[in-house]
Amino acid sequence: MFRYLVRRFLQMIMVFFATTFIVYALMYWTGGDPIQALAGEKPVNDVLRAQLTKEYGLDQPFLVRYWNYITDLLHGDLGNTLVGRPIKDVLADAWPITIQLAVIAIVVTILFGVTAGVIAGIRRGSIFDNTTLVLTLIVIGIPSVVLAPLAQYLFTIQWKIFPTTAGGDASLWDLLLPGIVLGSLSVATAMRLTRASVSENLRADFVRTARSKGMPGRRVIGIHVLRNSLIPIVTFLGVELGSLMAGAIVTEGVFNIPGVGYQLSKALTTEDTPLIIGIVSVLVVIFLVANLIVDLLYAVLDPRIRYE
């Protein structure tokens, strides 16, 4: 177990350097002119340009700039945005909102996706099963660029159930509709996964054993089947929570929620290279940690898995 953890940490460090390097390199070669981006539409004279180039270290070779960035990053300094605000502060404002949104989405996923999946798995071929199957197909088929504005139009403008946008200091109620929209994509996947897992385990030999032990049907399903079906579901939810943490660029954009996804899309449109790299670096770390937790959880749920 200890050796496994050490190996995983070494892997994580390598993945971290590789991904930040790739992002840094991509921004370096395709990022356009950062000084012009800083100045906006105004022309920049040569004196100012030379001064800014020196100030931001833009005259340094690529590898030196990457090295400087990484050493600062490892000291906890993400640098400043182009307009001079510490990136740390931007993230500190954005994270709590994104985390709330992600948690709402996951709760929605568990509440609807997993529950419906269990029922559909038990009653395979029933009306409930077929209806949810068609519904999930539709939801999977609609991209969030369509789903988010559609939900916003129907629920906030047409029927006026939820507030239209969330804004800066959003309450849980403000975030509920965006959370549901964000979760609906995982609901469909979670339902399919749960259904497959439950119906597969229902046919397993150990279910026949439990029945021949005289266990009542609700115990056979609630304990023997469900405990086994949870293994892939928890794994999926863990990875999904990780990617929801990355923020939902579309959903946050549509509902005007200043979370991580919103900041990232803003940074992309204003060509704020330091902010883009800063956010992506932190996201890489979150993904890596989420994946590690899921893998460790997997061993807890399935005793057959042992890490050496």
């Binding site: 397993a204 030999d205 150990f206 026949r208 054993t209 749920l301 399935d302």
Partner: peptide, 14 residues
């Protein structure tokens, strides 16, 4: 009571 052929799959793995 009944016992089955393949005890590995007949017992609950978790």
């Amino acid at each position: 009571s009944m016992i089955f052929q393949d005890a590995l799959s007949a017992l609950n793995p978790v």
